[in-house]
Simulated scan of single mutants.
Amino acid sequence: MTKLPKLSTFLKSLFTLIMFAISTNSISAEKIILIVGGMEKQIYLPVKLAERLGYLKETGLDIELLSEPSGVNAVTEMLSGAAQGVVGFYDHTIDLQARGKQVQSVVQFSQAPGEAILVSKTASAHIKSPADFKGKTLGVTGLGSSTNFLTQFLASKYGVKNSEYTTLPVGSGSTFIAAMTQKKIDAGMTTEPTISRLTSTGAASILVDLRTLKATEAALGGAYPGACLYMPTAWVNSHKEQVQKIVTAFVKTLAYIQTHSAQEIADMMPPDYYKANKQQYIDSLSASKDMFTADGIMPESGPATVLNVLNGFNKAVQGKNINLSNTYTTEFVKAARK
């Protein structure tokens, strides 16, 4: 008769097998939450496109995408530990470092904001440039958001102090449109497809255009890296394999954008993203597709331009010794390109 192994030996063996199974599946077992500052915005198109193309699924990671209308609210969620990363604007990494928080962009989606300041039809007779913002109400996605940052900079550039106008958080998309058509705001900064939805009906006109690299360089003095995936530096350093998989998926997506037409890209997006006017969505994407980076690499002069913009008005940044090299990394993008 065959002797059974001692119970203690059996349990030790079972425990070893369980721990091995856990270790080999740990990378895919941990849920990774990425909050997007408005999933339907064209500036954040690479995120949804990566999901639709199956690139995020190919990572083998349990990734959940959540949409939050304002980037500043997404930052709060990330810092609280409710999310591992935010798809938002790079300028938050500098603002957060000035406030003692270390986060970094791990893949750069765009080299231009992809936004514009719109003026309502009724206010257009009185607002011809940012110099006319005095006494006006300006719409932004949220207080402390990137649209707020850029609006404040453009106002200060034209000699208008923050105290001389009112900023009103109105979100994006339908809520922004409602605020403008209901005359709650005189002007405001928003993105596509909201820009085209308002200008096509004559409800608004473009005052400052930041949708392309050329227009951005003229308005801000250089490339302005906007949309990116940024994460807490400590989490990046302790989860390099996961970060690499995510970045590789997004680098593949950026390559897809470069090699496919706006029509082909639009065909991959959910119908509710273009609000029953697909051609308008295609046209706006075609006109501003060059805002996306070709490979996820941070534009060489971009961080300095962003710091210069923030120094123009942001009291949290002014006078601080900002280490720009800590606000982004190219480590994962370069590995993905290989």
Rank of each mutant, 00 (worst) to 15 (best):
D209T: 07
N326V: 06
P225M: 07
K3E: 14
K240P: 01
K41A: 09
T166I: 09
T201I: 03
G171M: 07
D290V: 02
K136W: 10
Q42F: 05
A123H: 14
N25D: 14
K338G: 13
N311C: 08
Y281K: 02
S325R: 01
F332V: 01
K12E: 06
I117S: 10
K121E: 15
H92K: 00
G188F: 00
G319D: 04
L213E: 08
T93P: 07
K161H: 14
V47H: 02
K6V: 10
Y90Q: 00
E58H: 02
D62S: 12
L17T: 02
F332G: 03
T327K: 00
T2D: 11
G159V: 00
F89G: 11
K315Y: 05
Y224M: 03
G202D: 15
S13T: 09
E30Q: 15
L324C: 11
D209C: 04
Q182L: 06
V36M: 10
N25T: 09
I297D: 11
F153K: 08
G38R: 00
T248A: 09
A336S: 05
N25Q: 15
Q318G: 04
K48M: 11
K214G: 04
T76Y: 05
T76A: 15
T330W: 05
V317E: 13
L96H: 06
K338P: 04
M298P: 08
K161N: 15
Q242M: 02
A178G: 11
A112R: 00
P69R: 12
V119T: 11
P271V: 12
V75H: 10
S146I: 01
Q244D: 14
F133G: 03
G135N: 03
I195D: 01
Q263L: 15
G85F: 01
V160I: 06
F149K: 06
N73Q: 09
E217Q: 14
G38L: 09
A29Q: 13
N326T: 09
A21R: 11
E331I: 00
G71D: 07
W235G: 03
G221R: 01
L198I: 06
G135R: 01
S145A: 12
D91K: 02
L17E: 10
V140E: 13
H239D: 03
E217N: 09
P303C: 11
L14G: 15
Y256Q: 05
S70K: 01
S110D: 10
F153I: 06
L310P: 07
T329P: 03
S261H: 12
V103M: 04
L229G: 07
I282W: 01
R211T: 03
V208G: 02
L14H: 14
K48C: 05
Q104A: 14
V47M: 05
F149Y: 13
I18R: 04
L79F: 05
S196N: 08
T93E: 08
L11T: 07
K48D: 07
T16I: 08
